[in-house]
Each structure stands twice: as C-alpha cells, then as structure tokens.
C-alpha cells in the first residue's frame, strides 16, 4: 500500500477499504500536526477544568452516596440513604419552598422593573450616564457589605426604614427576625442588587433597535404603547432571554446575603438549598447530606438550563 499523503482525503482518490482505514488513523496525526498550537494552548485550561471542576463534581456525586465521618475519616457506603434523609427533611422542604418563592418574586419584578428603568433612562437625555452609573453602584458593592448595609437600615431601633414608617404611625417592624418579613427582605435585597446588571443590559439592547423601524411605526401613526409592543419588545428579545436566564440562574446561587443577614432566617424562614448545603458541610459536618443537596441542585439547574436554552433556540428561529 502506498504511503498516504497527509493532505489527501479518501473521497479524492477512490481508495479501497484498507486504504480508507489507513487514512482515518492518519487523520488523527494530521489533526495534531495541523492543530498542535491550539491544543497546547488549551492544555492548561483543560488541566484546571479537569482538576477543579470535573473531578470535584464527580467526587461530589460519589460522596453523596456515602457517609463520611470527618473525624474518623471512615467512609461507608450508604447508597441512597443520604438522598432519602434530605428529601424527607422538613428543613429541606422549607428551603425549596423558600427558593421557589424567591425565584418567582425576584425574577419577574426584576426583569420588568429593569426594562421599565432602562426605557426611562433612555428617555432622560443628558442624565443617562449618571443614572446608569448610579443604578449600577449596588452591583459594585460586596455582597457582605450590602448585607450589612441593609441590616443597618432595617434595624428596629435605629434603622431609617422604621423611622420613616413611624412618621406614618406604623409601629417598628423587626424585619429580619419576623418570619413573615424575613424572606421579603431577602427578595428586596436581591432585586436591589440585580437591577444594575439587568438595566445596563437592557439599555445596551435598546440602543440596538433600528431607527428606521421606529420612524416607520411613528409615520404609520402608532402611539407609544403600540411602538413598544410591536417594535421595541421584539427587537430586544435576545437580551430579554439572556437577562431571564442569567437572573434565574443567579437566583439559585444566592448565599452571601443569607449568610450575612439571617443565617437561614428565623426558623428557617430564609433558608435555601445552597445555604443549607453550606450548613450541612461546615456546621454539621455531614458531607454526605451536603453533597446530596448539591447533586440535586446541580441536576435541577442543568435541566432548567437545557429547557430554557431549547426554548431560546426555538424563539430565535
């Protein structure tokens, strides 16, 4: 069999089966000969991802099926008992309930509000830059700083919120220790922080609306509401999907605010799976339960992201 020239492809030469097989093996060599530099460049990232991402995730799955006693170091296989324990734990039920409430009541107002604010800012003329910067400031502030800040102003004795309320004759509410209001506080803080990012994204999206379409709609006599519904909103559909996905995903990851402000809340009123995970791992030292929570969350987010991505792809077609 003649030596195969690396750049010749099977369909060029009418090779028989033997020679085709030889071509296939040499395409691997060809690949590396042509693409050795990108491969080399990807190796560090690959190593880090393997070591600190893939392996930990797999290790996490493994741990969730075992009971690991940190003190003695003994690992014993427990099968699904960790999952059964967690799934029947009322604290976990409360956590999941809280998280669902949080997601619904944060995402929807956040996106709507961000869009409205973005439109308002766009209509402001010269003050656009300052307003955009001001809205973005909460994002720059560390989560623990913002947690502390909100604790100050919500303080039942000296906080400004209660003082303003008392001017209207309302009694001071202990916002963070009342089971009815604690979750509401976390929601408000979440919206407060999330506005900056989303407003900025929407402003960028609004800038990309074609002027011709706007002019055409105005000439056709559309009023502002109609312009919004038929021109503006469809044009920013990509940004809207992006904002929705990122907001929902970041809702799953909320941790610092809870840890700094309520530590899970009065009677688990603000507990959430991510926080409970941390509690199980670093307060109760039960790695088995902690990793089973993290595995379940992982799967939940994965499924959710795939659903959302598929809907986004369909919408873009």
């Amino acid at each position: 069999m003649e030596k195969v020239n690396e750049l010749q492809l099977p369909f060029n030469r009418g090779l028989n089966e033997e020679e085709t097989r030889a071509c296939r093996t040499s395409t691997v060599k060809t690949f590396f000969r042509k693409f050795w530099l990108p491969t080399l460049m990807l190796v560090p990232a690959g190593v880090f991802y393997m070591m600190f991402f893939v392996y930990p995730t797999l290790h996490s799955f493994y741990l969730s099926f075992n009971d690991w006693n940190i003190l003695t170091g003994a690992i014993s296989f427990e099968g699904l008992s960790n999952y059964k324990e967690v799934l029947s734990d009322p604290v976990f039920h409360q956590s999941v309930r809280n998280m669902i409430v949080y997601i619904i009541f944060t995402t929807i107002p956040l996106i709507a509000l961000s869009l409205i604010i973005a439109i308002l800012i766009e209509n402001c003329g010269p003050a656009k830059g300052i307003l955009r910067t001001a809205i973005y400031i909460p994002v720059i502030i560390s989560m623990s700083v913002s947690g502390m800040m909100w604790q100050f102003i919500l303080s039942p004795t000296t906080g400004i919120v209660n003082q303003v309320l008392s001017m209207f004759g309302v009694e001071p509410i202990s916002w963070l220790t009342d089971t009815r209001t604690a979750l509401g506080v976390i929601i408000v803080v979440g919206i407060w922080r999330g506005l900056g990012t989303n407003v900025v994204l929407f402003i960028a999206g609004l800038k990309g609306i074609s002027k011709e379409q706007l002019e055409a709609a105005k000439i056709d006599g559309a009023n502002r509401l109609q312009i919004f519904r038929y021109v503006t909103f469809p044009s920013i559909s990509y940004v809207t999907s992006f904002v929705t996905i990122t907001t929902i995903i970041s809702c799953f990851q909320i941790f610092t605010t809870i840890q700094v402000m309520t530590m899970g809340g009065p009677n688990n009123a603000t507990n959430m799976p991510v926080f409970q995970l941390w509690q199980e791992a670093f307060q109760f030292f039960d790695m088995g339960r902690a990793t089973s929570i993290s595995t379940m969350m992982f799967i939940a987010i994965l499924i959710l992201s795939m659903i959302i991505m598929r809907r986004m792809e369909k919408a873009n077609d």
Binding site: F52, F53, S60, F252, Q253, F255, W278, S294, L302
Partner: peptide
C-alpha cells in the same frame, strides 16, 4: 459558568 459554584466548592475544599 451555569453550574452553581456551591456544587464545586465543597469537593474543591477537600482537594
């Protein structure tokens, strides 16, 4: 980027 960092943090702590 989508995977919650917590899922990775505990095993990373172990490593």
């Amino acid at each position: 980027m989508i995977i919650p960092t917590v899922a990775v943090m505990i095993p990373n702590y172990i490593i």
